[in-house]
Each structure stands twice: as structure tokens, then as C-alpha cells.
């Protein structure tokens, strides 16, 4: 029995969420007193593969085939399912990001393995296998038992800490079957926005709502974000109005994020907004209305006008950082 961790790579590179996943899988393997195996698909330099070993993986498998040129949910599922069976995996762990959400449900059916989607903690017990997850968009949580022998889990991003534990992992490159003719989804074009910190990856997020009054007032938010190395976000009305791009909309119908620090500036804190940000470790709210619901979700708050408070905040950060 083993724990198999599917680790996505982005043009041959891993990122923080990859290491979170391996840390999680390795801890889970400890609960079973077994080995954690990290699996990635496609070309990755060995120096990059070695990095996965630092977080407790005992083995690292790189599945390759010259036919693999883009993502395909059916073929990726087949490759992962093949390794799950070959390695006698008791649990397969994936990220709860776009890729994981595309593969995990297919894998669950293919392996007839119960799926725990979006878990944020290790199982309370492994026999029975009890998982804990957010339900009703964060208004409640639930414990579920996964009843099957094989389990599939997707781990919520930024919910599990990195745990260093170098096991001198054995790295192997394995040629796998890839059914090019079976790829029924063809990628015609890829549009990338380069250079920006991704909202879903960011440790700090600065978000503005309708209380910012006009798109012309976003200057201090951008400056503040730049100083803190943060990503920018917004509430739904702000993106609906076209004040900010749609990629920035957070909430139930936008992106669901869990940064370490979320600044909600001129955001009232409607339940649908909180559904996307309530897993943030810290929330700071700036709002003129002392009764705004956002203050019930926040640990730190300033009751005041954003147009006056923000420039002072920017100044304070400049001072502290000596910029």
C-alpha cells in the first residue's frame, strides 16, 4: 500500500502548492506507516524533481511520453489511475485547483474510489477514513467517511503547511502509454498574462469593493500591492462594472482563495463575498461603516474612509520597508 501524490508542473516547474501537496501526502503516508510517492507528468529537469523529495516523498516518478503536449483530462486520468493500481495506492492526493478538479472526479469513477474534495486537514482517523471539509460555501463544515478501499482527496490550496523532511527520494523516469488519437479536446491557443502574481498563489491579497467609489481610485491599491508583493482582487460589483478585470473577482461566483492575509477595502462582507475569502488566515477590513459584516470576519479593522486611510498605509509600509 502507498500514498500517491499527483503533482502538476507548470512548464517543468513546481510551486508552493506542489510542496504543500507533497508535505500533506507524506504526513498521510506516516499515518499508514507507508511510503509517499510523488508523480508528475511531462518533462521536468531532475534538479526541479529533487525539490519534491525535500518534503517527505520517498519516491518520485516522472511519467513521460513524446505525445504529451497539452493537458487532457481523460489521458491524465488514465496515466494516474495506472500508477495508482501499479503502486497499490490506498490514497491518491491531488490539488483542489483547476487541474485537480478536472482529474479527481474522473479518477474517482475510474478507480471506484470515494472522493473527498477540497479537504484542508489530514483525516481525523484513517479507519474509518474521516475527512473534514467546508460545506455551504463556508457557512458550515462537515465530516464524511470515505468507505472505499482506495480514496481520492483534493487538498485546498494554502491550507497545509510545508514540512521539510528530506528522504533522499529515488527518482525514476517512466515511459507511459499516451493515446494521442484519444485526445478529443484540442488546445488551439494559449493566452497567458505574464508577470502578474496569481491571485490563487498569492500570500497577500489587496481587494477593493464598491466603497472605492470609482476605478480612478485604484492607484493606492495597486501601489500598496506592489509594495507588499501582493495580488489584487475585487468584489463582484466592481468586476461587473468593469472597474477591474474579471479574473480579480473573489467570492462564491468568482475565485475562492485562502491567502495568509486578505485586505478588504470598501467591501461590505456579503456572505457570497466571504464564501470566497473566509479561509484566509487573516482578514483586515477598512470600511466607513462600523456595522459592516466584514468586521465580524476580520481580525483587524480600521473604521474610516479608504481614500484617506490607504495613502497613510502605503506611506507606513514605505517607511518600514525603507523604500
Amino acid at each position: 500500500m502507498s500514498v500517491l501524490i499527483f503533482v502538476e508542473n507548470w512548464d517543468g516547474k513546481f510551486k508552493k502548492l506542489s510542496f504543500e501537496l507533497v508535505s500533506y501526502g507524506a504526513k498521510l503516508a506516516e499515518m499508514y506507516a507507508t511510503e509517499a510517492i510523488a508523480l508528475t507528468i511531462g518533462n521536468v529537469e531532475s534538479s526541479e524533481l529533487v525539490r519534491l523529495g525535500k518534503y517527505g516523498a520517498g519516491r518520485i516518478i516522472q511519467a513521460v511520453n513524446p505525445g504529451i503536449t497539452s493537458f487532457d483530462s481523460q489521458n491524465f486520468t488514465s496515466v494516474i489511475a495506472g500508477f495508482a493500481l501499479q503502486e497499490n495506492a490506498g490514497v491518491v492526493v491531488l490539488s483542489n485547483n483547476n487541474t485537480g478538479k478536472a482529474i479527481a472526479p474522473r479518477l474517482s469513477v475510474k478507480l471506484k474510489a470515494g472522493l473527498g474534495a477540497g479537504v484542508s486537514k489530514l483525516p481525523a482517523t484513517i479507519s474509518p477514513f474521516v475527512i473534514y471539509k467546508k460545506v455551504f460555501s463556508g457557512n458550515a463544515y462537515a465530516n464524511f467517511i470515505i468507505k472505499t478501499d482506495i480514496k481520492v482527496l483534493t487538498l485546498a490550496q494554502n491550507s497545509f503547511e510545508l514540512i521539510e523532511n528530506d528522504r533522499n527520494a529515488v527518482i525514476s523516469q517512466v515511459q507511459v502509454d499516451w493515446n494521442s488519437a484519444g485526445v478529443k479536446t484540442k488546445v488551439n491557443e494559449v493566452q497567458k498574462q505574464d508577470g502578474k502574481i496569481l491571485l490563487t498563489d498569492a500570500d497577500v491579497v489587496i481587494s477593493g469593493g464598491r466603497g472605492m467609489k470609482s476605478p480612478d481610485n485604484w492607484g493606492p491599491i495597486l501601489e500598496f500591492a506592489e509594495l507588499l508583493g501582493a495580488a489584487t482582487a475585487c468584489s463582484r460589483p466592481v468586476s461587473d462594472e468593469g472597474w477591474r478585470p474579471h479574473e480579480e473577482h473573489t467570492g462564491q461566483t468568482g475565485k475562492i482563495i485562502a491567502p495568509n492575509l486578505y485586505f478588504a477595502i470598501g467591501i461590505s462582507g456579503a456572505t457570497q463575498h466571504l464564501a470566497g475569502v473566509s479561509s484566509s488566515k487573516y482578514i483586515v477590513a477598512i470600511n466607513t461603516d462600523k456595522d459592516a459584516p466584514i468586521f465580524s470576519a476580520a481580525q483587524y479593522g480600521i473604521i474610516g474612509d479608504a481614500s484617506k486611510v490607504l495613502p497613510k498605509l502605503v506611506e507606513a509600509v514605505r517607511e518600514i520597508k525603507g523604500k
Binding site: 474517482s108 471506484k112 474510489a113 470515494g114 472522493l115 473527498g116 474521516v130 460545506v135 463556508g138 457557512n139 458550515a140 463544515y141 462537515a142 465530516n143 464524511f144 467517511i145 470515505i146 468507505k147 472505499t148 473566509s278 477590513a285 468586521f295 465580524s296 470576519a297 476580520a298 481580525q299 483587524y300 479593522g301 480600521i302 473604521i303 474610516g304 474612509d305 484617506k308 486611510v309 497613510k312 498605509l313 507606513a316 517607511e319 518600514i320
Partner: peptide, 25 residues
């Protein structure tokens, strides 16, 4: 393949700590 054990309500967050708007530092 799965079975609900029980729901839980979210733990209440600690009260918000307020900072003087004149002194955001």
C-alpha cells in the same frame, strides 16, 4: 462511496481589533 458523519458550525472568530484611522501605521 461516502457517508456524512455530522455537520459542524464554523468556530467563531475572535473579535476584530480596531486601529485608529489617524494612525494606520
Amino acid at each position: 462511496l461516502t457517508e456524512l458523519v455530522a455537520f459542524e458550525m464554523p468556530k467563531p472568530r475572535a473579535a476584530c481589533k480596531f486601529v485608529d484611522p489617524e494612525n494606520p501605521k
